[in-house]
Each structure stands twice: as C-alpha cells, then as structure tokens.
C-alpha cells in the first residue's frame, strides 16, 4: 500500500492574539487559555493554546499541501501542552502499515500531538 507522503512543515510562533481570535471565533473562553493566574493555579506554567487551534494549524498545513478537497479525516491525540509563542514542527509519521499522519513537536522536542490523516485518492478511499 502506497500512501501519499506528507512533507514536514512548521507552524507558528503561535501568538496570544491568535489564541484570543480563536477563542472568540469558536466561543471557547475557558480561562486556562487567557488567564495566566488561572493557568498557574491549574499547575501550568502559562496559559495554553486551545487544542483545536493546534489542530486547525495542522489542518492548515495539510490544506496548503493537498487542498481542502482531499482531506477526508483527521484524528488527533493531544499529548502535551502548547504555549503562546511556541513554534511547532509537523513531521510525517507512520502508524502501522495502514495509517499515516503526522507528529507535532515543540521546539524543545516535546511531542504535543499525533494525528492520523486520511486523504482522498489514497488506497481504499
């Protein structure tokens, strides 16, 4: 089975303005994304980027590479926090023989997400 390769790319830095815009756009005003003191009381060093914003930025890389019409499905596991100011690398990753996707890492190497991606035009699609 030959799956369409996903090239490596970069995202960010993710600004606090982007976080604010995303929160307003989707109506997610959880203070853990906006209030540093709330985040610290939750045991975090800073506010965290919305998980779906991280996902949206990864989807955007795929849209740029393949076009929206080829995207059928993405299944993302959020594995670690992303903070404002982070730059992320999006690297191809195989998940067994049949699944392919990406791993998303912070600049310090922390893996913050993995995603299985299904594109139209791949075998069995």
């Amino acid at each position: 089975m030959i799956l369409t390769p996903i090239p490596a790319s970069e995202v960010g830095p993710i600004s606090r303005r982007s976080v604010a815009l995303f929160g307003d756009a989707v109506g997610d005003h959880n203070p853990v994304h906006f209030d540093p003191e709330f985040a610290r009381r939750a045991g975090l060093p800073d506010t965290v980027v919305h998980g779906p914003l991280t996902v949206a930025l990864v989807v955007d890389r795929l849209v740029e590479e393949f076009g929206a019409e080829r995207l059928l499905n993405i299944d993302v596991r959020l594995r670690g926090p992303v903070f404002p100011g982070d730059r992320l690398t999006v690297e191809p990753r195989a998940f067994g023989e049949a699944d392919r996707g990406v791993a998303v890492c912070r600049a310090n190497g922390d893996e913050v997400a993995t995603a299985i991606v299904i594109l139209a035009g791949d075998p069995d699609q």
Partner: peptide, 11 residues
C-alpha cells in the same frame, strides 16, 4: 475547567 483539558479532536 480547573482540572479538565482536551485530549483529542477528530474531524
């Protein structure tokens, strides 16, 4: 919300 975070998202 003080002890809940998102662990996954699919489309």
């Amino acid at each position: 919300l003080r002890r809940t975070l998102q662990g996954g998202q699919s489309y």
